Deep mutational scan, measured.
Amino acid sequence: KKKYVIKVYFEDTGKEVEIEAESKEEALEAAKRLAEELGLKIKKVEIYP
């Protein structure tokens, strides 16, 4: 089964997080949740198959 690796870059902090997920949708949801939890804004998202 294919996994996606999503790199999320946050504004202000210069922080980046990698998330593995089964689908792009799932990964983007996780990225949004994470940003909310951390109180950060997402600057850029890169998706690698």
Rank of each mutant, 00 (worst) to 15 (best):
Lys15Glu: 09
Ile6Gly: 02
Lys3Phe: 14
Lys7Ser: 02
Lys1Tyr: 13
Ala21Gln: 02
Leu28His: 11
Leu40Asn: 02
Lys44Phe: 08
Glu29Pro: 02
Glu16Leu: 07
Tyr4Cys: 02
Lys3Asp: 02
Phe10Ser: 01
Glu37Tyr: 15
Glu29His: 13
Val17Pro: 02
Lys44Tyr: 09
Glu37Ile: 14
Gly39Phe: 05
Lys3Gln: 07
Glu18Cys: 10
Glu11Cys: 14
Glu29Ala: 15
Ala27Ser: 03
Glu16Ile: 13
Val45Phe: 12
Lys1Glu: 05
Glu46Gln: 07
Lys41His: 06
Lys41Thr: 08
Leu28Thr: 05
Asp12His: 12
Ala21Val: 11
Ala21Pro: 00
Glu20Val: 11
Glu36Leu: 15
Arg33Cys: 05
Gly39Glu: 06
Leu34His: 06
Lys7Asn: 03
Glu46His: 13
Lys3His: 10
Glu18Met: 09
Thr13Tyr: 12
Ala35Cys: 04
Ala31Arg: 00
Lys7Ile: 04
Lys44Pro: 01
Ile19Phe: 08
Lys2Tyr: 11
Glu16Trp: 11
Glu29Val: 13
Ala27Trp: 03
Ala35His: 02
Arg33Gly: 05
Lys2Ser: 13
Lys43Pro: 01
Lys32Ser: 11
Leu38Gln: 06
Glu20Lys: 04
Leu34Cys: 02
Tyr4Leu: 03
Glu36Phe: 15
Lys3Val: 06
Lys43His: 08
Glu18Ala: 05
Glu20Arg: 07
Glu26Met: 10
Lys24Val: 14
Leu28Trp: 14
Leu28Cys: 04
Tyr9Gly: 02
Ser23Ala: 04
Glu20Cys: 08
Glu18Phe: 06
Lys7Leu: 04
Lys44His: 12
Glu26Gly: 13
Leu34Gly: 01
Lys15Ala: 06
Val45Ile: 03
Arg33Thr: 05
Ser23Pro: 00
Ser23Leu: 03
Phe10Val: 01
Lys15Val: 09
Glu20Met: 10
Lys3Trp: 15
Tyr4Gln: 02
Glu25His: 10
Ile47Thr: 05
Glu46Thr: 09
Lys7Gln: 02
Lys32Val: 09
Ser23Val: 03
Leu40Glu: 03
Val8Gln: 00
Ile42His: 01
Phe10Cys: 02
Glu26Lys: 06
Glu25Met: 08
Ile19Leu: 12
Tyr9Asn: 03
Glu46Tyr: 14
Leu38Ala: 12
Ala35Phe: 04
Glu25Gly: 05
Ala30Tyr: 15
Ile6Trp: 14
Gly14Met: 08
Phe10Gly: 01
Glu18Pro: 02
Ala27Asn: 00
Thr13Ala: 11
Glu11Gly: 12
Asp12Val: 09
Ala27Gln: 00
Lys43Met: 11
Val8Cys: 03
Pro49Met: 15
Ala30Cys: 05
Lys24Leu: 11
Glu26His: 12
Val17Lys: 04
Val45Arg: 01
Glu29Cys: 13
Lys24Thr: 13
Val17Ile: 10
Tyr9Met: 10
Glu22Pro: 10
Leu40Gly: 02
Tyr48Thr: 13
Ile6Asp: 00
Asp12Pro: 09
Ile19Lys: 01
Val5Phe: 10
Leu34Asn: 02
Val45Thr: 05
Val17Gly: 04
Ala30Trp: 15
Glu26Cys: 06
Arg33Met: 08
Tyr48Ala: 07
Lys15Arg: 06
Glu20Asn: 06
Pro49Trp: 13
Gly14Arg: 04
Glu11Ser: 14
Ala31Met: 10
Ala31Ile: 05
Lys3Leu: 14
Ala31Gly: 05
Val8Met: 07
Val45Cys: 05
Glu29Lys: 13
Ile42Trp: 04
Glu29Ile: 12
Glu11Arg: 15
Asp12Asn: 10
Ile42Gly: 00
Ala31Tyr: 09
Val5Pro: 00
Ala31Cys: 05
Glu20Thr: 10
Ala21Trp: 02
Lys2Gly: 07
Ser23Cys: 04
Ala35Val: 04
Glu29Tyr: 15
Ile42Gln: 00
Leu38Tyr: 12
Ser23Gly: 04
Lys3Ile: 07
Lys32Met: 14
Glu25Leu: 05
Lys24Trp: 12
Glu22Lys: 04
Lys7Glu: 01
Ala27Asp: 00
Phe10Pro: 00
Ile19Asn: 01
Leu38Trp: 13
Lys15Thr: 12
Glu22Tyr: 12
